[in-house]
């Protein structure tokens, strides 16, 4: 590993750790007083959205294709992990919270990733509009299935899921998830996927197995949607299939687009702001989606690349800019 890069990684890691202690300072002291648990809830939901939106951006931004059924993947992660942790509890197996939480995350991620492969292999033969429609169709099929299966509540609310998503855990998983996705994007895999987005015919003429890299990216994306779903299930503790509707998928897409297709930084900021803002302004709730949609139309007309375009934040980059040593953020890994 080049030395300069190593230092950059360490600085970024330090930033993540500092932020963690900042959160601990805010939440574990009496700083916030009575609103502490309320704010904490907003932060947890925001972090869950961050994982979800970054995963969606892998498909929408980097691969340049549409998944309009990403909430469907989230629901698979949520239900599969909830079923497993509830079964473990019912069987009288007492595990430490952290272990149970990790089991939920791994189960949610892997099962959703498997579903991603199953959906991706046939669906990714299509592109553009048709792929978009097919992803909606798959999400709807998943929703109908969860409504019909007894094990997932048979159309009623599935409740009594253990509350495991404590903000420490969620923070660490979110940080790891975003980091892994960043590494994925800035590797030969991400490079191939971007080439496919630019021109899939030229990509295959350069020896790239287009289907393979598309399915791979789709699967990675599904994995993290599942992770996000698992965290969600174990925070909310009750699930209903109608929650994971087309509109929910559209909400995540809005966050991706506003943040910037092709920028994970944009996704993090977009998800954090758009999921925290309506909570913070309760009276604004009824108008939330209305305003989102208006903003979305305006962004499409005036700045289709979103707020961040393809800019990526990096702490060392910003430090260098601040100290005037080098301009620009992290342009390339």
């Amino acid at each position: 590993m080049p030395k300069a890069r190593k230092i950059d990684y360490i600085i970024n890691l330090a930033g993540v750790i500092v932020l963690f202690f900042l959160l601990m300072f805010i939440f574990d002291t009496e700083l916030l007083g009575r609103v502490r648990s309320y704010i904490q809830g907003i932060v947890i939901i925001a972090m869950i959205s961050i994982v979800m939106v970054c995963s969606l951006n892998l498909i929408t931004g980097f691969m340049g294709e549409f998944s309009l059924g990403h909430a469907g993947f989230m629901s698979i992660g949520a239900y599969s992990s909830a079923v497993v942790t509830m079964a473990l509890e019912n069987a009288g197996i007492i595990l430490p919270d952290l272990l149970l939480f990790l089991i939920a995350i791994v189960i949610g991620g892997i099962i959703t990733a498997l579903m991603g492969v199953l959906v991706g292999i046939p669906a990714l033969r299509l592109r553009g509009d048709y792929l978009a429609i097919v992803t909606i169709a798959f999400a709807e099929i998943i929703r109908v299935a969860f409504t019909n299966f007894q094990i997932t509540g048979g159309g009623k609310t599935l409740s009594g899921i253990p509350k495991l998503s404590d903000y420490h855990y969620v923070y660490v998983i979110t940080a790891i998830s975003v980091c892994v996705m960043y590494m994925y994007v800035r590797s030969r895999f991400g490079r191939c996927v971007r080439a496919i987005r630019e021109d899939y015919i030229a990509a295959s003429a350069s020896g790239i197995n287009v289907t393979y890299y598309k399915v791979m990216t789709f699967t990675v994306s599904a994995f993290f949607a599942g992770v996000s779903g698992a965290m969600y299930a174990h925070y909310i503790t009750s699930l209903i299939p109608t929650k994971f509707s087309f509109n929910y998928s559209a909400e995540f897409l809005t966050m991706v687009i506003l943040g910037g297709t092709g920028s994970l930084t944009g996704s993090v900021v977009g998800a954090a702001v758009l999921s925290a803002l309506p909570e913070a302004l309760r009276s604004f709730q009824a108008y939330r989606m209305l305003i989102y949609s208006v903003v979305l139309v305006l962004v499409m007309i005036f700045k289709p690349s979103g707020l961040f375009g393809s800019y990526e934040f990096s702490l060392p980059g910003v430090l260098r800019t601040l100290t005037g040593r080098k301009k620009g953020g992290a342009k390339d890994e």
């Binding site: 490079r191 971007r194 080439a195 630019e198 021109d199 015919i201 030229a202 990509a203 003429a205």
Partner: peptide
């Protein structure tokens, strides 16, 4: 091969 109407990855 190359293409008649150049196909590069333009934004890369």
């Amino acid at each position: 091969r190359t293409f008649q109407n150049i196909r590069l990855f333009k934004n890369m």
